[in-house]
Design a protein around this nucleic acid. Structure first.
Lengths: 135, 135
DNA sequence: TTTAATCCTATAGATTTAATAGGTTTTGCA
DNA sequence: TGCAAAACCTATTAAATCTATAGGATTAAA
């Protein structure tokens, strides 16, 4: 299941990507348009800013704007920041690998090998799709 | 993320599928071999039995056994029983559809269309893979 | 100097997940 | 016939995670 955090984050990013100019857009504008709680969105945008995808301007007339061209922001990156691993099981994750506590041998684990397939497919989509494609 | 319930369920099913005969196997035997809590596994097997994939025999010498040939149990079915929807977002689910409360128009939702792609890919894997393939 | 905005951290509330508890029922077997 | 071994069943706890909110601190424009 995709968390609301990630879903909202993606929606906010595409909202910003749809802007004609790159002038800062206020949280409230995004929140209202996308039906997201203002405060919740605030924390999400903060994360995306700290990750380097958004810039911000404080004070009157401030807001958020994209730091890169939408075509240079792959969904995979955003997903990993907000949601975490793309893999369904940590023992199959490229960026968040963890050994399973059950499961003595990954190679012979039926679930492991199945989940590698799923990861590969999902990864391909997320890596080959950018924000620009979502508009 | 795949829940432990589903992971354990899949492991237990493949364990049963690997048996030579179709004689009942005790929960403890599966639990020990796969490093799963006995009690937790108990509830999982119960669900799979009620769903018609497992049969059981009570009393001494009892246990669980597959009701169908492993090649006739697609992963998609097991996944839906134990984990729920395969889709990452309810508005994209075939078997568990639900409208999003934000999102006035699904057609124009960027997340929606992205998640349809992911679902289609994952579904293809889960439908074309059976228990027999996991052995 | 006022106002409008982001920044930041903590925390509450709700939901979900994982696991356990504790007894009931059935069955094989001595 | 009675004991032991197994599944059956439901409730409940404990922990983790997710969603959302609170409440101020900081910054900048006018």
């Amino acid at each position: 299941m995709l968390s609301r955090k990630t879903k909202y984050g993606l929606k906010a990013l595409t909202f910003l990507a749809r802007q004609e100019s790159n002038r800062p857009v206020q949280i409230s504008a995004i929140a209202e348009s996308e039906n997201i709680s203002h405060k919740f969105l605030e924390t999400i945008l903060l994360i995306l800013r700290k990750a380097g995808y958004l810039g911000s301007k404080k004070g009157k007339g401030g807001g958020y704007y994209l730091m890169k061209d939408a075509s240079e922001i792959p969904i995979a990156a955003v997903y990993r920041i907000l949601e975490g691993p793309i893999a369904m099981v940590p023992c199959v994750s490229l960026n968040f690998y963890e050994k399973c506590d059950d499961c003595p041998d990954e190679e012979s684990c039926s679930v492991h090998n199945l989940m590698i397939q799923v990861r590969d497919n999902t990864l391909k989509i997320f890596e080959n799709t950018t924000l620009a494609d979502l508009i």
